[in-house]
Design a protein around this nucleic acid. Sequence first.
DNA 1: GCAAATTAATGATTTATTCAAG
DNA 2: CTTGAATAAATCATTAATTTGC
Lengths: 183, 183
Amino acid sequence: MPQTPSTRWSPTPEQLMILEERYRSGVRTPNASQIQQITAHLSLYGKIEGKNVFYWFQNHKARERQKLRRRLGWQHQLLHQSEGPSSPTPPLHHQTPPTFPYQGCFHEVSSQGMNLVGKLEAGQGQEEEPTGSNALYAQPCGSTDGPPCCRPLRTLDLFPTKSTGMGDERSSSKSSSCATSTN
Amino acid sequence: MPQTPSTRWSPTPEQLMILEERYRSGVRTPNASQIQQITAHLSLYGKIEGKNVFYWFQNHKARERQKLRRRLGWQHQLLHQSEGPSSPTPPLHHQTPPTFPYQGCFHEVSSQGMNLVGKLEAGQGQEEEPTGSNALYAQPCGSTDGPPCCRPLRTLDLFPTKSTGMGDERSSSKSSSCATSTN
DNA sequence: GCAAATTAATGATTTATTCAAG
DNA sequence: CTTGAATAAATCATTAATTTGC
């Protein structure tokens, strides 16, 4: 195939600039509306599709995260998201039916210093409430028009976004109506 | 700095790994025996007490739950968020069985060796703003662009799709309809 | 100086977890 | 208990840089 239709989108400097700007503005996972908007904007500078925008944000985020992790070494911090594939995931299923024996276990387990046993339980329940800021996320989906089979990702339309408080222009709107072509 | 006289326990990577492994294995609320066992195991990698294990599970569980709640929990909670004039009310058509999330802005994958037609949905991105502002997650549900979401499972004929008509078709091949109301 | 080959970036796909709902 | 929805991580594949040979 002499003609290799660019299968891959390549962002133009302008597009990249806009994307980065958006990113810096706080947009990490734009939702449909956001993506549409951004796509429309970017389209003025070159061919682009929503998925490109979506992917870009996804990859950018992931890679930034990756870099930071590697650089700073995410030793022991409050970062437990999922990490390594080191273990082959033992097929361990429910090992023990957790009933509820926390309290009891305490004095038994903790051998030394457990001064706050009493408050522990209580404190745990409340914990800290989320700050409340929310950002928008998008959910992508593509309709490959080739094979007659499209798994309709049913996503509920939501529009939570209540002004994250960042100065982003997040318009919360849903709108997800799409037409799947021949499936 | 010598030992960390921190009053707080900080899980080492190994410990965290083990804990997560246990969590993934299904342990949500370990009982005394479980905590003992886990604590013993973790103690090999660093100082730890049973309460730490207990707390970790409690917090982890709660946190995951909260996170999820933020993302998907608001479905029927704030379903009616007066969007006002511009916001398109959720096109909840009783007819449309599964909500269609993302529209397809996909085109055929003209790849030479791409024989994997089956597609799944793509994931989103997380957020890791180095700028300093941490954002929270919101509810996504967009459909402007989309990652691949076609899966050769069953030919489900979705509604005729209204294809609102997006004048934005710059791509010639793909015929995806991205119908989004002007938001 | 240019062009082919190699390497690095990064866009696009796939996979695996997780919690919630039916 | 099974299914649903959604992400983040991991991976694949292709384009862009860079290097190297002539």
